[in-house]
Design a binder for these strands. Structure first.
Lengths: 234, 234
DNA sequence: ACCTGAACACCGTTCAAGT
DNA sequence: ACCTGAACACCGTTCAAGT
């Protein structure tokens, strides 16, 4: 809408790391700590400055703006995901599965990443490394041309689309297990006119939400992999 | 982390709509206009107040806080999605497909919804209506018990996970087609060390990104539906 | 080369006060 | 019952000035 130019940290030459003062790595590390502790809304340039014993605006020497900082921490997330190299796995499904589990695990471990992933262009070195490995895995599986990308995107889309709501649910619960009961009651009340929904609500006891989510992930993942495999033989 | 209580508009009795002054509907409508025009960041209580010729803080009489307002507009999004009733379709795949296309279309039409969907508990009447219809569709397909939910969730996860990055890409481009070329160049430069990625980059010409995305969606959707169908026969 | 503080233009939200 | 304005505690970012 606004005629803003597209820009990204990855398109600018980084400032040569002379390292007398602060460094980008140090800043990114501190930012991740803040994010893990206080979430996406808890990260402000001022707080981050304070954490580094720096003036509120010193960071602007290392980073053009907050968005760039987020691009940097975002790439760290991709760095924590594992895509086993093809030699280590027997077939592509194993690689794909391992990646999917790892991606979900990383997002759940850094819930703030759910607000970044998919919303920030993934052009950092770690993100590209993952994309490259995934690409090779699906090529090895037998996909050709653009379908290599389609297959990889389908897999990550599933993980993303499953995990974001999981994080949202966790945050809504805000670590207050007492509340689960009250929310449940509210959902049940809201579902009053929907017998199909109520029926299922009653099947899962409050305690097993974690388990239910794991089953749902396994179910969906198997479906996605089956579906991709089907595309391979036709 | 903070011991916040879970709360939602849908759990509070709405204020009786006496309608001398403003009404919730009016506010929600204005909020959506603002959102469509200026995006998620463009919506502020002050701006919305101004748009309604009201003091900046008048809205707090109708809505507990901004989050509640967002829950309200969020449910409107679900209201725009269509799930054809089973009588109208020949089999469940047709229903599922129609819903998936509709969901994607709605999100692309209201890009700001990408920042809400999956991140806000979907407990509004429209969201529940969609969930109920989807539930019936997958039940009709032959799924049983919790698998009805798993199947529906897998489908929406795919749509969500595919569409969020699409929106992100659109926003990054910010309507400036000139930039597409420059971004492409940057991506290519960044991908220098990844021959597999470069190979594919060159296959798709700048102009066809829309088309490529549509193909990718069709590909992934077919895979997901095949995968779900496979779960049905075993 | 690096860091600072003041300043600007914003936020969401509370609350006493008005009609 | 509804609306207001002032006030509070925040934001991101710019920029002239310091060392």
């Amino acid at each position: 809408m606004t005629g803003k130019q597209f820009s990204s940290v990855w398109m600018r030459e980084p400032r040569p790391a002379r390292t007398p003062g602060r460094s980008r790595e140090e800043i990114v590390r501190a930012a991740m700590e803040l994010l893990d502790a206080e979430g996406l809304d808890g990260l402000s340039m001022r707080k981050l400055g304070a954490k580094l014993d720096a003036g509120a605006t010193s960071l602007y020497w290392y980073v053009a703006n907050k968005h760039e900082l987020l691009e940097l921490v975002y790439d760290e997330i991709w760095g924590e995901m594992t895509v086993p190299p093809p030699e280590e796995t027997k077939w592509w499904r194993q690689t794909a599965r391992a990646f999917a589990l790892s991606m979900r695990e990383v997002i759940l471990r850094h819930p703030w990443s759910a607000g970044l992933i998919g919303r920030t262009p993934a052009l950092g070195p770690n993100a590209l490394e993952v994309a490259g490995r995934l690409s090779r895995a699906f090529k090895g599986a037998g996909f050709r041309g653009l379908e290599i990308d389609y297959a990889a995107s389908t897999l990550t889309a599933f993980v993303l689309g499953t995990t974001i709501p999981e994080v949202a649910y966790n945050e809504a619960m805000a670590e207050d297990p007492l509340d689960e009961e009250s929310m449940r009651a509210a959902v049940e009340r809201a579902s009053a006119g929907h017998p199909d929904l109520l029926e299922r609500l009653r099947e899962s006891k409050p305690a097993d939400t974690t388990e239910v989510r794991e089953m749902m992930f396994a179910f969906g993942l198997a479906a996605v992999l089956d579906g991709l495999e089907a595309r391979l033989t036709t």
